[in-house]
Amino acid sequence: MRIERREEISKIVLYSLPFLSILASLIFVGILLWFVGVNPIEAYYIMLIRTFGSKLGLSELFVKSTPLILTGLAVAIPMRAGLWNIGAEGQLYMGAFIASFVALNFASPFAIPIMFVLAAIFGAAWAFIPAILKAKFELNEIISTLLLNYVAIYWVEYLVYGPMRGKNVYNFPYSDLFPECATLPRFFDTRLHLGVIIAFLIVFIMYLTFRKTSFGFSVNVVGANPRAAEYAGIDRKKIIVYTMLIGGAIAGIAGMEEISGIHHRLRAAISPGYGYAGIPISLLAKGNILAIILSAMLFGFLYVGGSALQTTYSIPIAVVYIFQSLVVLFIIGGEFFVRYRVVR
């Protein structure tokens, strides 16, 4: 058995691949649901109706997609330079932490912008550690970014069980509620908040950055061939650090938006794996920045639908992970068969 490159690649199959993969994953997860005693058709019906059947559902779709758009970017931008940022989860927690600190201690009309800026800085700082270790010592960024997630999560846990635990929270691991000046304004009587718009704005800015600037050009070169980039005088180490800083900053903003737009307080489990979801989101979008909106919305739907399943059948939200991984595996598998054929 041998594997050969196909001479002609079917464009139609290539472009329909993501949709076929999504379909295949739905079927696969359906079988699993049936296995644990849930009628999959009923379950998918509930997911659809709870998401698209009401104003609330639709608004939730955008609310859940917002952090996903941001973590998708946080993974995708370093990925353009050939780096794996598996640490968006931790960067998100660090952003949430500093934003809460500002909200609870420095209430003022300027609280929101200060929270944004500091959240970006703290997210970036958290990403700076693995970035500089990669640039200076070639330390594997996959492992280091991931390990730092646990540190950040335990840090926030420590705060809400200890120094930042609120006075009126009945022993729950929460901080006090933020003053109003530190919460993002909401619209239409839903949880839709200003952060949604800001997320879209960030996508647009990033799109322009990578389409138009010489910085974007050099990132693409480093991602395509780091050694050729070096020969061409592009400072690969700088690019490593910059893309990770941008990714970390965006993930930090995601953390700020989650607590200032949704929870209005610091608590332990802010994110049901948004940072990790950024990886399949970015892979699904194939590094195309605008396409991140689409793939994040798909995953947003899964989270909204997933929590509907959680309340109806008490299925853990972890089922979303299964779907995420399957979509990507089907895509890379499918792409293989589009590009190669097996010859006997």
Binding site: K212, S214, F217, V221, N225, R227, A228, A232
Partner: peptide, 28 residues
Amino acid sequence: LGSGVASKLSVVENLMLRDFENYGKFNL
């Protein structure tokens, strides 16, 4: 292939590998 070009990038991009900065910073 390893150091001279980035093989995934286009002919234009590879020809501009060193001089792209002369074509604008924020608006290439």
